[in-house]
Simulated assay, not measured.
Amino acid sequence: MPRKKRPVVEYRHYNLALSFPVLLLTGERWRISEIKSSNLHFHNCLEIGICLQKSGTIDVEGVSKSFREGDVTCIPRYIPHTTYSSPGEESLWEYIFVDPEELFRDMFKEFVESFEGPLSFCENHRYIMNREEFPQVWFLANSIVNELKNQRIDYQTSVKGLMLSLYIEFMRIHDAKRQQTKRIAIRDERIVIIANAIDFIYKNYMHPINIEDLADNCHLSVSHFRRTFHSIIGVAPLEFLNSTRINEACKLLRSTGDTIISISEQVGFRSVSSFNRCFIKFIGVSPRVWRNTYLQSETISSKSAIMELNGWM
Rank of each mutant, 00 (worst) to 15 (best):
P2Y: 04
E61H: 11
T181M: 09
Y11C: 13
G88L: 08
L18D: 15
N124W: 09
P76Y: 01
F229K: 02
R152K: 14
F42K: 05
E28G: 15
C74W: 01
N146K: 14
N146H: 09
L92K: 04
F121R: 06
K109G: 04
S274W: 00
H230A: 09
Y95M: 14
R245G: 00
R190G: 01
P237R: 04
F279D: 04
Q156W: 03
M313P: 03
M206A: 08
Y84T: 02
V222S: 03
E133H: 07
E102M: 13
E169A: 11
L23P: 04
E169I: 04
K182F: 08
N242M: 05
D175G: 02
S301N: 12
G49D: 11
V222Y: 05
P7E: 10
S37R: 12
Q136M: 07
H41V: 08
E248Y: 06
I79N: 03
Q266V: 01
I201R: 08
P118R: 00
Y14G: 07
R29S: 13
Q156H: 01
I209G: 01
R131M: 07
Q180P: 00
S143I: 00
Q151Y: 04
A17K: 06
L25A: 12
E94T: 12
L16G: 00
P287M: 14
L40Q: 08
T181K: 13
L238P: 03
D175C: 00
E239K: 03
Q151R: 15
Y205W: 10
R29D: 09
D59L: 14
D59S: 11
D213N: 15
C278S: 15
N196W: 03
I261K: 06
I184S: 15
F104P: 08
T82K: 15
D106Y: 05
P118T: 00
N204V: 02
R68P: 01
